[in-house]
Write a protein that binds this DNA or RNA. Structure first.
Length: 790
DNA sequence: TCAGTGACGTTTTTT
DNA sequence: ACGTCACTGA
């Protein structure tokens, strides 16, 4: 066992009064709290409310630990308590802990809870995502990899842009090889830690191919072996892409991880430094780690092997991002002295919901044996609803949400999940019409709006003048007479002289071939950028710099001159961004001599901001999100919409044979619900204009019928019965009353809102203005407790 | 250089 | 059905 490593770790643990390096065997727990009085009571406090297996995990003595935790079994809690335990018992100083969470939000919550438990200031703790941790390490060590510290982080669209540039440079036809596909291949290769040459080697020489053809093929393309033209193109683009990204002093999301691995592999001193500083490494959602992340964990915990990972193989849903369940299945082999703790008691859901989820996931093969149980009651049945089309489905959701709210469920405790972001649209329209407040997580994000990206690109360019993508974005926005031709001349001059695009701009009189008008426009822009650059160098508040950028570049002015509603919205968005900057400036700890300038830190935060981070849980809103975004969350009531073959499981997953991952995704969705669970499907759904007939998802059929309660919309009931399925038992659901014959002007009485008058109607919906509060509401004709006043 | 028009492909999921 | 992108004419 890594005795040496641990002794070394102990030596460098300045805050540790203990000589943990000297303690051997499993029985460390007896000594754990004893020497520190305050620590002892704190330890008791934080162990008190744990069940035996949770406690075993938290009190784990030494070496690698794998916690296999079922859904809702308190795995994040175990992780939090483990950190608190390490701090409280003095086994680790806060600064020696690196805890990896899946989102920034989860990280913030975890820090706060550790603070609550220990009373310790957690600022020193590294509790963050893989990407944030890597970005921080890279900022500090960038020079080792011939990067500058002000490297730019490209988001996915920007990375795609760079791929397109490279393809153009290689004269590859984007119609023949879609840039998206190439980008996906590159990303996959990076996550598997393959470089361009390896990619070719792996792709080449399929053993099943006909040797005759192989021979011909190898004659045709001797140096590369027998790849398809696509694979060769991927490798070529990959190679150039890597070079151009480095020239640009830019990293994509994958680079953040890969470069950190490179750094730690290449430089022994750096590796040892970080191994010493992180004496304990903890990972949440371990089932979703991929090859790079795994390698990173190996490198960071190499000497001490204090690796504490928590995960659930049934919830592995990021295979498309190269996550490997293998990492969890093989953990015990890779770390032979691993201890395994299983958490199988579920504290979240009713027995019915848990049984449904277990029944679905049991259709997968090769899950690690777990038997989740709960001592909560049975609860309500799972509600199944089959509606006619996506609009009726949305109305059903809106109706059920209203019903739940009236029955006392807070809107913030209700969530709607769907497979694809596109599905939120119809739902949003309907919720607006029904006056149901909601928030959408993910989808088209604030930070992807053009004006926001422009503003960030300006800041990015000031920080990193080498970045051609930001340069291109910004140089003629607002329109200032620097068109494509001029841009091309500037960039190619930058290429030939090897200087940065921004520097070329500053000395544009050196650039050949510029027309007089262009020359003038360029010079004018260069002057403003020069001024702003001077400002940026002063490392003052980011908000002030951003405001200066927006006014001095004429960006705001141009928007205001448009005098349109949209432009107004853009200005508002920009104001919001300034607000974000103000908040950033206010929260920034005034630590002298930081390695990162405020501007770089701000840009980094924006780049690594995730969908879930914008989730607000305090307000009275229903939450809408994809199933992927739902991971790690829980709600009293969950509605999963679009449970149809082709939608969920997605047709593409079925084609690619990823059905088991889809089923795990379903499992994740089901297990988010504490009390009420709804699954809805539509018989017809419009996709790209064309309307298709859909059948219910196989996952719905995998739920035992005694757990469910069915509602089938009237229009489809017959067809459904003819389909050969068993007609459900009589629903206990409030039956849709036969729609009242209402016409505009009729006086009606509503169970909750009182008297009103019908002001309009649509199929299935009736609009009523109520006398009580004067509001007009859209109600579902079939469900609303309405009766005609006679 | 730019505004307007038509074709296209996009919809899996995300750091 | 919608947004993006490339092309075209002014």
């Amino acid at each position: 066992m890594g005795i040496l490593g641990r002794v070394e770790a102990a030596e460098h643990a300045e805050h540790s009064d203990h000589e943990w390096g000297a303690v051997e065997g499993d029985d460390g727990r007896e000594d754990a709290g004893a020497p520190i009085l305050a620590g002892a009571s704190a330890t008791e406090r934080l162990l008190g409310d744990l069940n035996p297996p949770q406690r075993a995990a938290v009190e784990h003595a030494d070496g690698p630990l794998l916690v296999l935790a079922g859904a809702g079994s308190g795995k994040t809690r175990v992780l939090t308590h483990r950190i608190a335990y390490l701090v409280a018992t003095g086994r680790a100083a806060p600064g020696e802990i690196l805890a990896i969470t899946f989102t920034n939000k989860a990280a913030t919550e975890m820090r706060e809870r550790v603070e609550d438990l220990t009373g310790a200031v957690s600022r020193l703790m590294w509790v963050m995502t893989f990407h944030s941790a890597c970005a921080r390490i890279l900022r500090a060590e960038a020079e080792r990899l011939a990067y500058s510290r002000s490297f730019t982080i490209y988001d996915e669209p920007d990375s795609l842009r760079m791929v397109k540039r490279c393809m153009a440079e290689l004269e590859l036809d984007p119609k023949r090889f879609p840039p998206r596909a190439i980008r996906a291949q590159i990303s996959g290769a990076k996550n598997r830690l393959e470089n361009p040459e390896e990619l070719l080697r792996v792709a080449g020489g399929g053993p099943e191919s006909d040797p005759g053809i192989d021979a011909v093929d190898s004659l045709m393309s001797a140096p590369e072996g027998g790849q398809t033209p696509f694979e060769r193109s991927v490798a070529g683009v990959f190679e150039l892409y890597e070079k151009r990204m480095h020239d640009a002093n830019a990293m994509d999301f994958d680079d953040l991880l890969v470069r950190t691995v490179n750094l730690l592999e290449l430089f022994e001193d750096v590796r040892e430094r970080y191994q010493r500083s992180f004496g304990h490494v903890l990972v949440d959602e371990y089932q979703d780690t991929n090859r790079v992340q795994y390698r990173l964990l190996q490198l960071l915990s190499g000497a001490h092997r204090q690796l504490f990972v928590v995960g659930d193989d049934s919830q592995s849903i990021y295979g498309f991002r190269s996550a490997e369940i293998r990492n969890i299945l093989d953990f015990e082999q890779d770390f032979p002295d691993t201890q395994l703790v299983k958490l199988e008691q579920n504290y979240r859901s009713t027995g019915t919901i848990l049984d449904a989820a277990n029944a679905v996931i049991s259709n997968n093969r090769g899950q690690i044996e777990k038997s989740l149980w709960t001592d909560a009651g049975r609860g309500d049945p799972v509600m199944l609803a089959e509606l006619d089309d996506e609009h009726e489905e949305a109305r059903y959701v809106a109706g059920e949400v209203e019903r739940l709210v009236e029955a006392g469920t807070s809107r913030s405790e209700i969530a709607v999940f769907y497979r694809t972001n596109a599905q939120s649209r119809v739902l949003e329209d309907t919720l607006v019409r029904f006056d149901v407040p909601y928030q959408v997580i993910g989808g088209t994000k604030f930070y992807e709006r053009a004006e926001i990206k422009d503003a960030i690109a300006y800041l990015g360019l000031l920080s990193n003048p080498n970045d051609p993508v930001s340069f291109t974005r910004v140089v003629n926005s607002p329109r200032r007479g620097v068109g494509k031709t001029t841009q091309g001349r500037l960039l190619s001059h930058a290429n030939t002289t090897g200087s940065s695009p921004l520097d070329v701009l500053m000395s544009s009189d050196q650039v050949p071939g510029l027309a007089a008008a262009a020359r003038k426009a360029v010079a004018r822009f260069a002057e403003t950028m020069g001024r702003l650059r001077g400002r940026a160098a002063q490392a003052g508040p980011v908000a002030a710099l951003l405001e200066a950028v927006l006014t001095e570049t004429g960006y705001l002015e141009a928007l205001e001159a448009e005098r349109t509603i949209e432009a107004e919205g853009r200005v508002e968005n920009l104001q919001e961004l300034v607000g974000v900057a103000v908040e950033f400036d206010a929260n920034r700890e005034v630590e002298g001599a930081s390695e990162i300038t405020p501007l770089d830190e701000f840009l980094q935060q924006l780049a690594l901001f995730t969908a879930q981070d914008s989730l607000s849980d305090s307000e009275e809103m229903v939450t809408l999100m994809t199933l992927h975004n739902a991971k790690g969350l829980e709600y009293e009531a969950v509605l999963m919409i679009g449970c149809e073959e082709g939608v969920f499981p997605h047709s593409r997953s079925v084609e690619e044979g990823n059905l088991e991952e889809e089923r795990r995704l379903c499992y994740v969705g089901l297990t988010r619900a504490k009390r009420n669970l709804y699954l809805t499907s539509a018989r017809r759904r419009r996709l790209f204009g064309a309307s298709g007939r859909n059948v219910r998802s196989r996952f719905v059929g995998e739920i035992p019928s005694e757990l469910v309660d069915q509602h089938v919309s009237r229009q489809s009931a017959t067809g459904w019965t003819l389909g050969g399925r068993q007609q459900p038992a009589a629903p206990t659901r409030p039956e849709p009353q036969p729609a009242l014959a209402l016409s505009i002007g009729d006086d009606v009485v509503h169970g909750t809102f009182g008297e009103g008058v019908v002001t309009g109607s649509e199929p299935g919906v009736v609009m009523v203005r109520f006398a009580g509060d004067g509001t007009e509401r859209s109600l579902m004709a079939d469900y609303a407790p309405l009766r005609k006043k006679s």
